[in-house]
Design a protein around this nucleic acid. Structure first.
Lengths: 102, 102
DNA sequence: ATTACATTTGCCAAATAATGTCAAGTCAAA
DNA sequence: TTTGACTTGACATTATTTGGCAAATGTAAT
């Protein structure tokens, strides 16, 4: 299963009839690179995600969420404690969220 | 806030009156290195986690879960979409879990 | 205050991983 | 069979992580 972020931006791009090379050129990146990102073979940089959101006219958050989820998945895949670990991590995030210190 | 894995193993080590240098020597690793791991300044390798579980006489899974949670936290910290992304990632893990293909 | 020992810190070299780039490859439509 | 879109693989470059050492700090006992 490929990346959710990649699938999303590929779908959006196709819906808007944009070519890889067109989007890549706006991003000032190699076409091959973008192809790999769309297929989940490479991770985009956060900065790139933001630019893509503008180009494809979607909200930052929509793409950022999928992009982050891919990264999380990367670290937990193949780990049998994945779900438990995610819950532990969630609790920590939630805890820090309410107790606003860094 | 330091790492949950680090806190855990430091606590366990102290409860058992073991010195950093003793544990480090069993692990065949630099004392400074282990000190950094306990304080969350460095990530242990999975293999090291397993060895530590044996040394400190706790279940693998207990440590592995905390260790994984730390890594997840690392990728999501400072991201405002952290919680949403974790939920998305969880769904993917759960989905793949029930539909057993890789 | 001095010693002895445990831990921490800072630094840097070595190892490892991620990225960018290019050229050649596949594939489908015209 | 030519063209254009995309993919693949290889490689050099760059960035990040790690391991190891020496010096620094902390702490308790003498």
């Amino acid at each position: 299963m490929s990346s959710q972020f990649g699938n999303k931006i590929r779908t959006l791009r196709e819906q808007q009839n944009l070519l890889l090379r067109q989007v890549a050129s706006i991003l000032e990146m190699d076409t091959a690179q973008l192809s790999k990102i769309e297929r989940g073979e490479r991770q985009a940089k956060k900065e790139t995600v933001l630019k893509i959101a503008v180009i494809l006219k979607v909200k930052d958050d929509e793409l950022l969420t999928l992009w982050l989820a891919d990264q999380i998945y990367d670290v937990v895949k193949d780990e049998k404690n994945a779900l438990k670990a995610m819950m532990v991590a969630e609790e920590k995030v939630e805890y820090l969220k309410t107790h606003k210190q860094k």
